[in-house]
Nucleic acid binder design. Structure first.
Lengths: 346, 346
DNA sequence: CTGAAAGCGCTAACAA
DNA sequence: TTGTTAGCGCTTTCAG
């Protein structure tokens, strides 16, 4: 059909005006155009099926209308829904959203940074594995972080209140009578990444007068393989039944995979061992037993991140903001409630 | 840091050569450069921290190094893994992959086509809802389809062999003694989209001498909401127990959500009603009961699609190819096997 | 309100 | 092997 790519030039000719005038109408730059010229140009555009080449325009305006969203695992519904929320917010503003999945790999993350440095993006929204804040600030485009980071003070951040979320889970386990709680989080990320959750964990133990046992803190990848590994390492603990009665997992994917593996070994989650997840992905409601977890507001996280970015692109100078959402306990069946009145076993 | 965006021009000055020479080294265009010039340029690049602006280069070469992957639901692990396979294949070749999720909406799909028409992409990989092949061919860049389409003869296609996959499921249900099999697929897509699966269904019935009952064919969205709706509509059938003993679902998301809803109504999948899915997403192994399904080779589908696109971008003239992968039956617990020898109930 | 001209960063003939 | 000269398609002063 319209094989010969038609540009502003042919539109100008057909409309009997100059390229500048055409530009003024297509670029919504506010340049004033007479009604008749506008009319003529619009007709020509229609007739020729002209489509503005945003990339070429960007060369001049230094805008690419592309935004990179970098997440650790796009196959995890938690992240894919966040990505979608971002798209929903940004695309109507004319931005194209590029999703990068790092698979928790620093190598892949570096590749995306590389991409970013080649002036491809107007903005970045990212959950970094490495947390190299300085690196992020040197990407040539504004970035907003998803996920609380203690190190990131002067960069926009949205996230769940990690400590509160962990605390909600921990408190629930305590209420239901658990006293020997194990923790499983990611081995990726800087120490800082871990610290907030671990911190909440330690504070909780201290507050309740419970001992801290390093054996009960597992560091694994937050994916399915990590979940299987977690279960195996957990079961490899000598006399684990005496050591732990509950397991708090860093995310649902991990928890669900671990539950599967536990079942394979004849350990019934919610009976022999309580398991609590984090995120509340859709699958959590469908597992056996269904997974008790802490829901994070995915959609709001994504939307808030997009809004932060939009604001910053408009006003690069403004001070960095941070917005934290609370997690919400979703009670299902993977945590035993039998011990409700079974105080002080420790 | 390197705030003042540095371009080929400053590199040329520092190296004491012309822009052309610099271009020749950074663009790997094969233009010959003397060793000493190369050396000097590389040092200057290093020193200045120069990064080539691919977009600007693209303006000249008519390449954007961007590829659009359009899928119906990026939150479905089936699609997210395909997308990842595509990224893994394409990114090393220098392409950035933009993932678009249409959420089964023709409106959103149209927005992506719009994007594509503004010469943003070098290629498209897509699973279209609307199946408007002519539209796809007029996007200004080569496209490859994911998902078998009877209408798409002259466009590269990769997919699962829909009929074979459906047949595998149907045969298994038959073997295990089911004779009144219901079908649930998407109401989106043209009739052509449905036809392959429905066709296989009808052929199967005919072959086995089973009656075709339109009441047993459900058309719903292939997502969670669709699953719940499916279960409700199914249960609303008067005397459904007499009408159906098995339900073949268009994908696992649908099947899993339907199972959840069935359970909520006290119907036990795998006991009161056999359910079989399609795709074998990770969650299928963790549901209760675990889901019997037909596995599709996600990774290979994505890889094959990327390879097709790469080939076509190199050689636009070559004839269209089609590559179909078989589905593989994964037996779990959502299909009752009790009726093994319980022939001819129909 | 409009057109001419310059230029965003890069590549591609064409000479030299 | 290298530099010069034109643009790719668009925006943006700056005159008029």
């Amino acid at each position: 059909m319209s094989k010969p790519k038609i540009s502003i030039h042919e539109v100008a000719r057909l409309a009997g005006v100059s390229k500048s005038t055409v530009s003024r109408v297509v670029s919504e730059s506010g340049g004033s155009v007479s009604p008749k010229a506008l009319e003529a140009v619009n007709r020509a555009i229609e007739q020729l099926g002209y489509k503005r080449n945003v990339l070429a325009a960007g060369l001049r305006t230094q805008k690419t209308y592309m935004v990179l969203v970098m997440v650790p695992d796009i196959a995890n519904p938690f992240w894919s829904e966040i990505a979608r929320a971002i798209q929903d917010k940004l695309e109507p503003e004319g931005y194209s959203v590029v999703i990068g999945s790092t698979d928790w790999s620093e190598f892949r993350e570096e590749r995306y940074y590389e991409l970013a440095r080649s002036s491809r993006f107007d903005g970045l929204i990212l959950n970094s594995v490495t947390d190299n804040i300085d690196l992020i600030k040197d990407l040539g485009a504004p970035g907003v972080l998803i996920g609380e980071r203690s190190a990131a003070q002067d960069i926009d951040t949205v996230g769940t209140d990690t400590r509160q979320a962990a605390r909600v889970a921990l408190d629930y386990l305590y209420e239901t009578g658990h006293r020997r709680i194990a923790l499983a989080t990611s081995e990726h990320g800087s120490e800082r990444y871990l610290s907030l959750r671990s911190q909440a964990y330690k504070e909780f133990l201290a507050e309740k007068g419970l001992p801290y046992d390093p054996e009960l803190v597992f560091s694994v990848n937050l994916d399915e393989e990590g979940g299987r590994e977690l279960a195996q390492r957990f079961l490899a603990l000598p006399n684990w039944r005496d050591k732990a009665d509950a397991l708090l997992c860093g995310n649902d994917i991990l928890a669900i995979a671990a539950m599967g593996e536990f079942r394979a070994f004849g350990i019934i989650p919610g009976v022999d061992l309580s398991i609590i997840g984090m995120d509340d992905i859709p699958a959590a409601a469908q597992t056996y037993p269904s997974l008790t977890t802490v829901r994070k507001p995915r959609w709001r996280l994504g939307t808030a991140a997009a809004e932060f970015l939009l604001e910053r692109m408009r006003n690069p100078g403004k001070p960095a903001e941070k917005r934290l959402f609370p997690g919400e306990l979703i009670i299902r069946d993977s945590v035993s409630r039998k011990r409700k009145n079974d105080e002080d076993k420790s």
